[in-house]
Lab assay of single mutants.
Amino acid sequence: ESETFDVELTKNVQGLGITIAGYIGDKKLEPSGIFVKSITKSSAVEHDGRIQIGDQIIAVDGTNLQGFTNQQAVEVLRHTGQTVLLTLMRRG
């Protein structure tokens, strides 16, 4: 069981404050995608409180990250504006 949710964030001096990890899993058993690996102290993400380590980032400002490499996803996140809309999925 999984839930998908949107989080809109405004960057602070730390930026968004997440590091991400790309993961290619076994299609049947484990998900592939871009996941939140860590959250920086005092960052926008930590202050917001809704995003957790292990959440999958589905889209950034409407750009679907399906099939993106870790590096491609980093580039998408790097080129966002001051306000960012993240679409995430959390597995229950």
Score class of each variant (00 low, 15 high):
Phe5Val: 04
Gln66Ile: 09
Leu9Ser: 02
Ser43Glu: 05
Val45Ala: 15
Thr83Lys: 15
Gln71Lys: 13
His47Cys: 13
Ser43Ala: 09
Gly62Ile: 00
Val45Glu: 08
His47Thr: 14
Ser42Gln: 11
Val84Gln: 04
Val45Gly: 08
Lys27Tyr: 09
Val45Leu: 08
Ile57Gly: 04
Asp6Trp: 02
Glu8Thr: 15
Gln71Ala: 14
Thr87Trp: 00
Glu8Gln: 14
Thr83Trp: 01
Val13Pro: 15
Arg90Asp: 00
Gly49Trp: 00
Ser43Trp: 04
Ile24Gln: 14
Asp61Ile: 01
Lys27Ala: 11
Ile39His: 02
Leu29Pro: 15
Ser38Gln: 11
Ser42Ile: 04
Tyr23Arg: 14
Gly33Arg: 12
Ala21Leu: 05
Val36Phe: 05
Gly49Lys: 06
Glu1Leu: 09
Gly67Asn: 12
Tyr23Lys: 15
Val45Arg: 07
Leu86Gln: 04
Asp55Gly: 02
Arg91Asn: 12
Arg90Thr: 02
Ile34Trp: 08
Arg91Gly: 12
Glu75Asp: 13
Glu3Thr: 15
Ser32Leu: 15
Ala21Gln: 13
Val60Glu: 02
Thr87Glu: 01
Ser42Asp: 14
Leu65Asn: 00
Glu75Lys: 10
Ser38Ala: 14
Gly81Asp: 07
Val13Arg: 15
Gly62Glu: 04
Ala59Cys: 07
Phe68Lys: 10
Ile34Tyr: 10
Ala73Ser: 07
Val76Asn: 04
Asp26Pro: 12
Arg91His: 13
Glu30Asp: 15
Gly22Tyr: 15
Glu46Ala: 09
Asn64Arg: 10
Thr4Cys: 09
Phe5Leu: 05
Val36Gly: 01
Asp61Gln: 03
Thr4Pro: 06
Leu85Pro: 01
Glu46Pro: 05
Lys41Gly: 07
Ala21Asp: 15
Leu86Gly: 04
Gly49His: 06
Gly62His: 08
Ala44Glu: 10
Val13Tyr: 12
Gln72His: 08
Asn12His: 10
Ile57Arg: 01
Ile58Asn: 01
Glu3Cys: 14
Ile58Gln: 04
Gly15Asn: 07
Gly49Asp: 08
Val76Pro: 00
Gly49Asn: 07
Leu16Cys: 03
Glu3Lys: 15
Thr4Phe: 12
Gln82Leu: 05
Leu86Asp: 00
Leu85Cys: 14
Ile24Pro: 12
Val76Trp: 05
Gly54Tyr: 01
Thr40Gly: 10
Thr83Phe: 05
Gly62Asp: 04
Asn12Cys: 09
Val84Asp: 00
